[in-house]
Computed example of a mutant assay.
Amino acid sequence: MPMTSSTSSPAGPDALRVHAQRVRELIVDMCANPEGGHLGGSMSLAEILVTLYHSVLRLDPADPRAADRDLLVLSKGHGAIGLYAALAERGFFPQEWLADYGTPDGPLTAHPNPAVPGVEMPTGSLGHGLSLGVGFALDMKLSADDRRCFVITGDGELQEGSVWEAAMAASTHGLDRLVAVVDRNGLQITGSTENNAGLEPLGDRWRSFGWHVIEVDGHDTAQLLEALSGAPHAPGRPTAVICHTVKGKGLPYIEGQARSHYARLAGKQHKRAAAVLRAQAKRAETTA
């Protein structure tokens, strides 16, 4: 069952779709600042993030450092604007703060900044987030703590050897309260992940390291809710949830394209993207 704080009830799949659309609108707005932002890999995370923050994680936005909170580490730190948007949508800080993204003296930096309410760890040097998660989960095990740690990784990030060192350690120590959530959008800045360093069969790779594996459509909130809220799934084994997603999701003219990796949406580009997402949001709200 979901382990959310007592301050709100877990959102269902329809409500989560609405939250995801709002998050995408906020991401696009942040990419309209003078510096731009990592658009594609943030858009692919929207449903994953809102499912975790609105229905799965035990947390309290009014007390981001509560001792009994579940932990989330965004290992693919270039998805920070997605994280900031999701935190603002959940109420960790006012959405007006997002307008300061990328400003010289603001806390909303290009990679996660722990000065921001709800951000657990600074990340962005790829390949280290799962190791942090192993440390957190090991502490939970030794303390007989019932909290959980979720680590969101990118699929291109899985080319880092340190990820698999952490995967071995997690299964060796039976860290069943650790969940790796893989944003499997199939692309990295240089193109297809399979053309750079093949990962398939990805599920079997995780299984060979002793992990329980679940594969879902990363944009289907019902599937995400079932997979993520059920952790731990297998006693004594960590879980990898492979989420099949689309880079740039929500903007059809850049979906599934490596060029969506980083963008500055100035002028007409911003207006076009915002209009597309507003139309999608209206449809989501009518079906919620």
Rank of each mutant, 00 (worst) to 15 (best):
T193N: 09
P104F: 12
G218V: 02
S229F: 07
T239R: 00
T103R: 15
G133I: 05
A115W: 07
P238R: 09
A227D: 04
S6G: 11
A32W: 00
I242D: 00
H219S: 08
G218C: 07
T286N: 12
L132N: 13
D183E: 08
M1V: 14
A66M: 10
P235T: 15
A281W: 14
H38Y: 15
P61A: 14
L52T: 05
S44W: 05
D146L: 12
I27R: 01
E215N: 04
V181I: 14
G236L: 10
W97K: 04
G129T: 03
A273E: 01
G248M: 00
A110S: 14
L142K: 12
H219Q: 10
E35C: 08
D217F: 00
V179P: 02
N33S: 15
S6N: 12
P61F: 14
P94V: 06
A80K: 00
C149P: 02
A137V: 10
V23D: 03
V179G: 00
Y262G: 09
H270D: 10
V119A: 08
A288E: 15
R177N: 13
D176E: 09
G198K: 10
P61D: 13
K76Q: 08
K247H: 11
W211I: 00
S208Q: 10
F136M: 13
D145L: 03
S143Q: 15
E157R: 01
G135Q: 10
Y101H: 14
K268L: 13
T190G: 12
A258E: 13
I81A: 00
L57S: 06
E194N: 09
D176M: 05
K76M: 05
F93H: 07
F209K: 03
A281R: 15
S8Y: 12
P235R: 15
A279D: 14
G37H: 02
R90A: 07
G37D: 01
S44E: 07
R22C: 09
R184F: 08
S171E: 07
H261I: 04
G129K: 06
I81S: 01
A166G: 06
Q257N: 09
A85D: 08
N196M: 12
K247C: 08
H111Y: 12
L187K: 03
S44N: 09
A86F: 01
D145W: 01
A170T: 06
L130A: 11
P107A: 02
L138E: 06
H54G: 04
H270K: 15
R184H: 15
C149I: 05
A99Y: 01
L108C: 05
E96I: 01
V213W: 03
H111V: 08
S125D: 13
V18Q: 04
D68N: 10
V246W: 05
I254G: 02
G256V: 05
T172Y: 11
M121A: 15
A273T: 07
L16T: 03
M168F: 13
I189Q: 11
P112T: 08
A20G: 12
S55Y: 07
Q188A: 09
G133E: 07
G248H: 03
K282E: 15
Y84S: 03
R205E: 04
Q223N: 06
W164C: 08
D183W: 05
T245D: 09
D176S: 07
E47V: 05
F93P: 02
L59R: 01
V179T: 14
N113T: 14
G36R: 00
R17Y: 02
R90C: 06
E285G: 06
D100M: 09
I189Y: 03
N195W: 04
